[in-house]
Every structure is written in C-alpha cells, then in structure tokens.
Amino acid sequence: MLFIPRSALAVLCATFAFNAQAAGPSGSAADYGVPATHSAAARSITIDSSTRHINVTRGETITIVRDGQRFTWQVDTYSNRSVFALAEIAPKSMQADGIKVYIAGNPLYAG
C-alpha cells in the first residue's frame, strides 16, 4: 500500500485547486480572442473613415482590412462580453479609433 504523508497530500491538493481556477481578464487583446492566420478567416470586413461599428459572431474568424493593411482575428471574448473597441485588437499602425465590435452569440453553443 502506498503511504503519502498528510502534509504532502494537502500541498498537492492545494496546488491542483489553485491551478484549476479560471484566469480573469488580463486587460490585453487576449480578452477578445486570438490572432489567426489569414487562411482561417470565414470572411473579410473592410473598414474606412465612415465605419462606426462591425458585427461578428462569437467564435468567428475574420480579417479586418483598411487602406491595404489587414489582420485576422478569432473572436472569443472573456466572460461573453458583447462589445469592445476594435482598437483593442488592431495593430497600432491601423487607424481603428472609434470603431466598436458588436459580438452576437454563436447559435452552435446555444442551449
């Protein structure tokens, strides 16, 4: 029979419990999803100076295009957030100030 001292067992349980906690928002672009390859995008959205918002679906991978620049993002917001500023995820060189991203729930995950 295997003997594990109670103190070692307590430390082991505490370690697992601490590591199992979900991470909170980090205040970074990671709170809104992750960068993706251009080939993974389901669609492309072109923005310009008149764009005030774009609509996406949670889990969708999109390419944002402006003035010859582009980036691709898989949208997955922390805590099912439904709106954020595009400037939070856009490259600093891309003008995205004042544009909101509205996220619809994904019907594949509706219960």
Rank of each mutant, 00 (worst) to 15 (best):
S50H: 15
T72R: 01
L9H: 13
Q95D: 09
F18V: 06
E60H: 00
G33C: 05
A17Y: 10
R43V: 02
Y78L: 07
G27I: 10
N55S: 07
T61H: 04
V56S: 00
G98H: 10
T46Y: 04
T37H: 11
V34E: 04
I54F: 04
T46L: 03
H38L: 15
T37W: 06
L86I: 08
G59L: 03
I45Y: 00
A85Q: 08
C13A: 09
T46C: 13
S93T: 13
H38R: 14
V11C: 04
C13E: 15
T77H: 05
R81E: 15
T77P: 14
D67P: 09
R43Y: 01
V11P: 15
V34Q: 07
L86D: 00
L12W: 11
V83D: 15
K92V: 08
A14I: 11
Q69K: 13
S50V: 14
R43A: 01
W73P: 00
W73F: 01
R58Y: 09
A20P: 08
A90T: 06
I89W: 00
N80F: 07
M94Q: 02
D76H: 07
Q21P: 03
E88Y: 09
T57W: 02
A30K: 05
A90W: 01
V83A: 10
A85L: 07
Y78A: 12
S39H: 08
V83F: 14
A17L: 12
Q74T: 08
S44H: 10
Y32G: 01
